[in-house]
């Protein structure tokens, strides 16, 4: 075990391991690129849906259940299925990662909107705000912390799952896990796993920091 840890330490700290087109720096960059793009696209799709059902209260049952269904979809299954149609491209990876991120953002956005007190909305109406004004000035600001939590959850899930890109020959930190497993190079597998975990934790801490700064005046 100590042997393995010293091998792991050597693997992680060797300069040669970090440089070059197959080095850790490049893999890390690819991983961040896949994750960021997927979360961004997912947010663009999921936020309007969550806001709409939260604001109008319509379609909540359908959307929440569809989200639950989305969470249950096996990512590897989606990747293989889309791959057979799209061929060798990043499309299957992006589709499955976006599908993974949407449910967390939709449900949290909806939950945030649903938690806005009816009194606050009534007050907004009473002040003469239109529905849209009430949404932008009252409901979204009040729901923002929960919405942000949803985005954070989704981001961490996507980072952990973006290793799937390596399954269909692409890069990212999953490359080390898939190659290491097939070639029985356990140091490489563990190195990849540690890097993915470290990246997920680091990004979550950064988002937590942003969360704090944004909502520091809140009581909740």
């Amino acid at each position: 075990m100590t042997d393995l840890f010293s091998q792991l330490a050597a693997w992680l700290t060797s300069a040669g391991q970090w440089a070059g087109p197959e080095g850790i720096a490049q893999r890390l960059l690819e991983h961040v690129e896949y994750s960021l793009l997927s979360t961004l696209v997912a947010a663009l799709i999921a936020l309007p849906i969550g806001l709409f059902i939260g604001h109008t209260g319509r379609g909540a049952f359908l959307a929440i259940n569809l989200s639950g269904f989305g969470r249950a979809l096996p990512t590897v299954g989606i990747v293989t299925l889309v791959f057979l149609v799209s061929g060798l491209s990043m499309t299957p990876v992006y589709i499955s990662l976006v599908a993974l991120a949407i449910p967390a953002i939709v449900t949290n956005t909806y939950a945030g909107m649903a938690a806005v007190e009816a009194d606050a909305k009534d007050a907004a109406r009473g002040m003469g705000m239109t529905g849209l004004q009430s949404l932008w000035r009252v409901e979204i600001p009040l729901a923002a912390p929960l919405i942000m939590t949803g985005v954070r959850l989704a981001t961490v899930q996507v980072i952990a799952t973006a290793t799937i890109a390596a399954y269909v020959s692409f890069g990212g930190l999953g490359r080390y896990i898939f190659d290491g497993l097939a070639q029985r190079d356990l140091t490489q597998v563990l190195g990849g796993a540690v890097l993915v975990a470290a990246l997920a934790v680091a990004v979550d801490l950064i988002l937590a920091g942003i969360h704090r700064i944004l909502f520091r005046h809140r009581l909740t």
Binding site: T80, F83, L84, S86, G87, L88, S89, A166, Y167, V168, S169, R175, F178, D179, A182
Partner: peptide
């Protein structure tokens, strides 16, 4: 390209020219 062992991925990629 790292794919699978004579499975759907490698055959799909060969078929589509990947």
């Amino acid at each position: 390209k790292s794919l699978d062992a004579s499975g759907p991925l490698v055959k799909g990629a060969l078929k589509s020219g990947g």
